[in-house]
Design a protein around this nucleic acid. Structure first.
Length: 490
RNA sequence: GGUACCUUGGCCGAGUGGCUAGGCACCGGUCUGCAAAACCGAUUACGGCGGUUCGAAUCCGCCAGGUACCUCCA
């Protein structure tokens, strides 16, 4: 069943059989968030995508070290504000310490991830916690002659690097194209070439987040942190590096350049990139101002949202598309996901009601194989889910007595659903708030028993009144041959 | 302007040469006192034009529309 996993490597632009450096172990680094705002729907895509990778690798037997960083310093703001970083700017606006901003949004991010049932990574390093490592990396790159210092700032010398290395091999760009597309950028006078990037930036006097270094009091460039931290915790060669497609260039290209310059070789074997979530066909992003935060999804408090959507609905919505495809947000699509998820979870929960027969009229083995085949084909979760829905139909037919299953197949079916629904896809049943309240449950049972009596007396008015009122309160009433079932919905 | 990608039925979304994706919605049927749930069945597709092929949603060309990256970004 657990045959070979193939994953699409952005570097080679094709699917490759995954082979870890150390048999039985896998190292994975994923670019985490910059904590200067609440996480939005877009952030959930890589988190869930690589949570899926993490979970599936563990399921097929790997011991995985998963490193996902928190960027809490160093991104230059887009509009020419001359090197003040995003965290620093936000701090001044809100009149608090930069590290307070970092703490608030880091906490918020972790809370949202827990709600989405995204497993915490093995190590969650922060950029500010690894300034020394980054300074060491800058020193090494300078020693190798691939960087130069100008007035306290250090820049990576892309043109020199490109003489002996392929700068652009990940993103498919050509250096001459980049050089010819002249873009006048502010504050770039120090750079020898427009394609160079800062690996250490001298801080302006008003800049709060700053650290001493051999070159100036300043802060590290963004591209440096991921190289310093990934190689520190995963080694100078590791298996998987993930992130959003929007990070392909320049971020990941620059990572490769720095690691090749500092170490003399690539450090990543498999580059994986998730695609974007779009809203009205356009990328959902902080800089575009068209994003909806995860908290807003969970509460429904946003003009574009018709209703609240649970974390599991969001998770399932994302898993229903392949990670390398764009996924378009809409209320209709989310509500479809919500209902589909409910059907899947209900069927999963009802497997225990199935009783084994002597014979099987259903083919569970082929179902199981289809699920693994899909996942082994570059984590094709939508196909795997489609197969699970075939399983849902089988489960419901078994419960209706329209199909039969032997005990071996039944055990396989149970294991398959438990494995895929809960372990691999990380879905979980919504907590049905007060449904576990014993007293309430007994009252509902009492009412429904009264309704049974009314039905026996053909008192349809009373019977329907009880059902309709309970339905209006959010209960779902299911009539069975000899009784009833009910549940309280979200 | 440069580079890459995308365009599938009412909506979302798989699928890389022949074989039903799947979900949601809708319609018909079974079940039900009537419903709901569940099951069964039906319907609606591959942006346009041309080419390759016995055969193309799938390969090639052109056109139209859209998106992403090139600047912070998941």
């Amino acid at each position: 069943m657990k045959q070979q996993l193939a994953i699409y490597n952005t570097l080679s632009k094709k699917k490759e059989i995954f082979k870890s450096i150390t048999p039985g172990f896998a190292g994975m680094y994923v670019c985490g968030p910059t904590v200067y705002g609440h996480a939005h729907l877009g952030h959930s895509r890589p988190a869930i995508t690589f949570d899926l990778v993490y979970r599936y690798l563990m399921h097929i037997g790997y011991k995985v070290r998963y490193v996902r960083n928190i960027t809490d310093v160093g991104h230059l703001v887009a509009d020419a504000d001359e090197g003040e970083d995003k965290i620093g700017q936000k701090a001044k606006v809100e009149q608090v310490e930069p590290m307070e901003i970092v703490q608030i949004y880091t906490n918020s991010y972790r809370r949202n991830m827990a709600q989405l049932n995204v497993l915490p990574p093995s190590i969650e390093p922060t950029a500010t916690g690894h300034i020394i490592e980054q300074i060491e990396m800058v020193k090494t790159i300078l020693e190798k002659g691939m960087a130069y210092e100008v007035d306290g700032s250090v820049y990576f010398d892309v043109e020199k690097y490109a003489q002996t290395n392929n700068y652009g091999k990940l993103s498919g760009r050509k250096l001459e194209d980049m050089l010819s597309s002249t873009r006048e950028l502010e504050g770039q006078d120090e750079k020898r070439s427009s394609v160079d990037f800062a690996i250490w930036k001298k801080a302006k006097p008003e800049h709060i987040m700053r650290w001493p270094s051999p070159w100036s009091d300043g802060f590290p460039g963004w591209h440096t942190e991921c190289v310093a931290m990934s190689t520190k915790y995963l080694g100078t060669r590791f298996d998987i590096h993930g992130g959003g497609m929007d990070l392909l260039f320049p971020h990941h290209e620059a990572e490769i350049a720095q690691s090749c310059a500092a170490l003399g070789h690539d450090s990543v074997n498999y580059w994986m990139h998730n695609n974007m979530i779009t809203i009205n066909g356009q990328k959902m992003g902080k800089s575009l101002g068209n994003f909806i935060t995860l908290d807003e999804f969970f509460t429904g408090e946003h003009p574009l949202l018709e209703k609240p959507y649970s974390p599991m609905t969001i998770r399932f919505f994302i898993l229903q598309a392949h990670y390398r495809s764009t996924l378009d947000f809409s209320n209709e699509a989310l509500q479809a996901a919500e209902k589909g998820l409910e059907r899947l979870l209900k069927a999963t929960a009802s497997i225990d009601k199935i009783e084994a027969s002597a014979q099987s009229t259903v083919n569970i083995t082929s179902l199981q194989k289809a699920c693994y085949d899909a996942m082994n084909d570059d984590l094709n979760s939508p196909i795997a889910i489609a197969n699970l829905f075939d399983g849902v139909r089988i489960i419901n037919s078994l419960i209706d007595g329209k199909e039969q299953i032997n005990s071996t197949d039944l055990n396989t079916l149970k294991a398959l659903f438990n494995t895929f629904v809960f372990d691999v896809f990380g879905l979980q049943a919504e907590e049905s708030n007060s449904a576990n309240n014993d007293v309430l449950g007994k009252v509902v049972d009492l009412l429904l028993n009264l309704r049974m009596d009314a039905k026996a007396n053909k008192d349809w008015a009373t019977s329907d009144k009880i059902r309709n009122e309970l339905t209006a309160l959010g209960f779902e009433i299911k009539d069975k041959k000899d009784g009833f079932e009910w549940e309280l919905k979200g």
